[in-house]
């Protein structure tokens, strides 16, 4: 199955940025992901293709995180400043997202921004679909609690 690079580039980039918090690095990792994808056999199934892409991206981000741990801490401080600005401007959702753990934020990004199918995310996290759905519901409840709202948007 042929890959729609225009659609998937942004999604993989967002995923990498969420992991490494650095724009240039995230783009490098995104491009590396697609180049490595070319070295694998192509699948007919979109689910398998997505799973392969996110697995490669995740592994690259993990390697990058281990290599550049110090610089990542600096970037996260920058993110905190942005969060403060956003709080001042009344952007509660961003603050609430920041309170989540890294893995929970990742799940929200994959599920609702990148629109990755539930079964692909479940396989990436190595949990069942039912367990993933329950976890997503818990994350959403936490977000509502942080924001003190019924709906998040």
């Amino acid at each position: 199955m042929s890959l729609n690079i225009d659609e998937q580039y942004d999604k993989i980039y967002r995923y990498c940025f969420l992991r490494v918090h650095h724009k240039e690095t995230a783009e490098d990792l995104t491009q590396e992901t697609f180049l490595r994808y070319l070295e694998h056999p192509h699948y007919n199934s979109i689910d398998k293709t997505l799973q392969l892409l996110y697995t490669i991206a995740g592994n690259l981000c993990t390697d990058e995180f281990r290599k550049a741990k110090t610089s990542e801490l600096d970037e996260s401080e920058t993110s905190d400043e942005n969060i403060e600005n956003n709080v001042l401007s009344g952007f509660d959702l961003k603050q609430a997202l920041h309170k989540l753990s890294n893995e929970d934020r990742e799940i929200i990004l994959l599920r609702y921004v990148n629109e990755v199918p539930v079964n692909v995310i479940a396989k990436l996290l190595n949990i069942s679909r039912f367990a993933l759905n329950r976890r997503i519901n818990r994350i959403l409840s936490s977000l509502r609690e942080y924001m003190g709202k019924e709906e998040l948007i």
Partner: peptide, 16 residues
């Protein structure tokens, strides 16, 4: 989706 993406604070890529 756009609001949520903005909430994550992810900048647009340059080299796409």
């Amino acid at each position: 989706i756009k609001k949520l993406t903005e909430a994550f604070g992810i900048p647009e890529p340059d080299r796409k």
